[in-house]
Design a binder for these strands. Structure first.
Lengths: 141, 141
DNA sequence: TCCCAGACGCAAATGAATTGCATTTGCATC
DNA sequence: GATGCAAATGCAATTCATTTGCGTCTGGGA
């Protein structure tokens, strides 16, 4: 684990380091429960209180360090390090597989124009449909 | 309340009629709790079990009659009659106001081209930023 | 009208997330 | 290196949305 920009008067505790590293190594957004279990097994045994994970994630989110999301159709939140870039997903309505989109459809569209009363700073997009394996068109947009 | 297409061997019960009508009159998606309370006061007194609302909504969703969503950042699901058209929202990061977009940015863009491995049938988009009152730009996309 | 699968009511169960409070611990200071 | 204290944590209890088991009720076809 290396030195890094860690803001204001916050303590760089063992637990926070652990959560941070787990998120850093994660390929995809993780739920609080998942993070908890990873931390647990990483430490060999019980190391954390689940509530601590939630508190840490809340702090990290507050700092803009992590991004909290909830997949549509899911009920538990997932967290990922805010790496500056954002990813959108195509979600299969059949098998619920999540396929990351390689590019953002808005890359060259200025959403800011959409509304005059609103300053857009970010956006979230999800496509729903069927993956190659489950292909079975039925509904219309 | 009027006659309508009501599919298969499902019973058109008092409770289902009530939930259906509440959703039909709703201007915006409602939470299960909200639907429950509306039904309660519509009936003058206790009329429903909360669990019944959930069961009815699950059935309606299964039938494609209603659409279940969860606002990002919220934890409770909301339900709306599936009216064929879809609405996107701009959500204020400050006051959490939700401003419906008058038009879908994808109206004339064929999302289907995005991925070859995926047949897109619907999508969900949310913009995040600051409304006129709360304007205070800070983050970048 | 009768019948019964499907619906419902109720109360208990789940499960994610939060919170109160006593205890611990970074870390700035001495 | 020792000290002090606000910040962080552990733990257990709590909240709140949603689900479920089960006995009872009822819409609607025969």
């Amino acid at each position: 684990m290396d030195e890094m920009e860690y803001p204001q008067g916050l303590k760089w505790t063992r637990q926070r380091k652990s959560v941070y590293n787990i998120l850093r190594n994660a390929e995809e957004p993780l739920s609080a429960a998942r993070i908890y279990h990873l931390a647990e097994q990483e430490a060999g045994g019980k190391d954390f209180a689940p509530s601590t994970v939630y508190r840490i994630l809340a702090v990290f989110e507050e700092l803009g360090l992590v991004e909290k999301t909830t997949w549509m159709g899911e009920d538990t939140a997932v967290y990922a390090l805010n790496r500056g870039r954002h990813t959108h997903y195509a979600v299969c309505l059949q098998c619920h597989k999540r396929i990351p989109l390689q590019k953002c459809p808005f890359a060259h569209i200025h959403l800011e124009r959409e509304t005059e009363d609103f300053t857009v700073v970010s956006h979230k997009l999800e496509l729903y449909g069927y993956c190659r394996e489950c292909r079975e068109p039925e509904r219309e947009v």
